[in-house]
């Protein structure tokens, strides 16, 4: 009987070369958080389509976010951030108003909203408290919403460290777990710099004890359909398509929102030279990534593998030297 030799995997990321003619254009998401209205249709559509189990009805008290974060049972997560700063800044106007307030020459436009008749007079019940900071015309608060998802990294640490080869790169350049191969070792869980992938522990559900994460709806994309979350998004905050087209569209959109005075707009994960080689699912954010629970400078841990193995080899050699030295002395 002929036995196939064991496959030796040196670099599992060999896309698209390893697919040859079967390689398809790389697919991804561009999540434009300036358009997100926090409806969570993406969360629901994802759970429905992918048969992801419920993970409890929890009231967190953290704005409208009762989901918490991505996990084995949450493949789309909408974050809600409430901030004491305006959503739009027309820089010159804001500066002007600031100067006016300082000089005590504020016009009616600069009066705090709740001090104006239409904006609600103080209610006399001690609310808001007298030492509360005053708003600036109702624009002093902004509510950031963002639908988070697996980044489908170009250099995916989860895929690299997977000891069984259960995690693989599809012909679309996305990263997917094969449920019939995963042995539930949990290595991918700690390898992901974003804390995306998890091991499912809900008894009675499918795939218990195995790694679970967004598949970019591999079953749908294979049939030319868009992923469930993008399909369900009512504002096109979640845009699905070919990654290079999305990157182009995103840079145009960034220019647009900056010109409109969105404060702090930036692309996150659109740079192919970053620590994970660029995200397959990237974002337009309005604040620092950590504000959304995202790492500011993610790096695939396997980028340091040469140094990790180097130090390991040095230590193993030292252990050998310790054995040798121990036998230099006498038998007693």
């Amino acid at each position: 009987m002929m036995r196939r030799p064991l496959p030796v995997v040196e670099r599992p990321d060999a896309w698209p070369a390893s697919y040859g003619d079967e390689a398809r254009p790389r697919l991804g998401f561009f999540t434009d958080t300036t358009l997100c209205i926090g409806c969570k249709a993406c969360e629901v559509a994802c759970k429905e389509w992918n048969d992801v189990p419920a993970d409890g009805y929890v009231w967190t008290g953290n704005s409208y976010d009762n989901t918490g974060g991505l996990s084995a049972n949450t493949w789309r997560h909408v974050a809600f951030i409430e901030q004491d700063r305006p959503l739009h800044v027309a820089p010159s106007k804001a500066r002007l108003r600031e100067a006016e307030m300082r000089d005590g020459a504020a016009g009616p436009d600069a009066a705090p909203l709740r001090d104006r008749p239409s904006g609600g007079a103080p209610r006399g019940d001690g609310y808001p408290p007298p030492d509360a900071p005053r708003g600036d015309g109702g624009e002093g608060m902004r509510w950031l919403m963002s639908s988070d998802v697996c980044k489908h990294c170009t250099d995916a640490a989860c895929l690299d460290v997977c000891p069984t080869g259960a995690l693989f790169r599809t012909e679309f350049g996305t990263v997917v777990v094969q449920q019939d191969v995963c042995n539930g070792c949990g290595y991918c869980v700690v390898a992901c710099p974003f804390g995306v992938i998890g091991r499912r522990e809900i008894a009675g559900s499918k795939g218990v004890g195995m790694a679970q994460k967004c598949t970019l709806c591999y079953d749908r994309t294979k049939d030319g359909l868009e992923p469930a979350c993008a399909k369900a998004c009512p504002t096109e905050s979640i845009q699905f398509g070919k990654l290079d087209e999305l990157r182009e569209r995103a840079s145009r959109r960034l220019e647009q929102v900056v010109a409109r005075g969105f404060d702090g707009a930036r692309l996150y994960g659109a740079n192919p030279d970053d620590g994970v080689g660029g995200f397959g699912a990237f974002f337009l954010l309005l604040d620092e990534p950590e504000v959304y629970g995202l790492p500011p400078d993610p790096v695939a841990t396997t980028r340091d593998l040469p140094s990790i193995y180097g130090w390991m080899a040095l230590a193993a050699g030292t252990l050998g030297a310790l054995v040798g030295l121990s036998f230099l002395g006498g038998r007693r």
């Binding site: 008290g61 974003f194 790492p295």
Partner: peptide, 20 residues
């Protein structure tokens, strides 16, 4: 709890996952 207590994080949630 309603407002984000730590501006450098999302409600103090961990970013990477704890080992299972």
């Amino acid at each position: 709890r309603g407002s984000n207590p730590a501006p450098d994080s999302y409600y103090g949630h961990p970013i990477v996952k704890e080992p299972v």
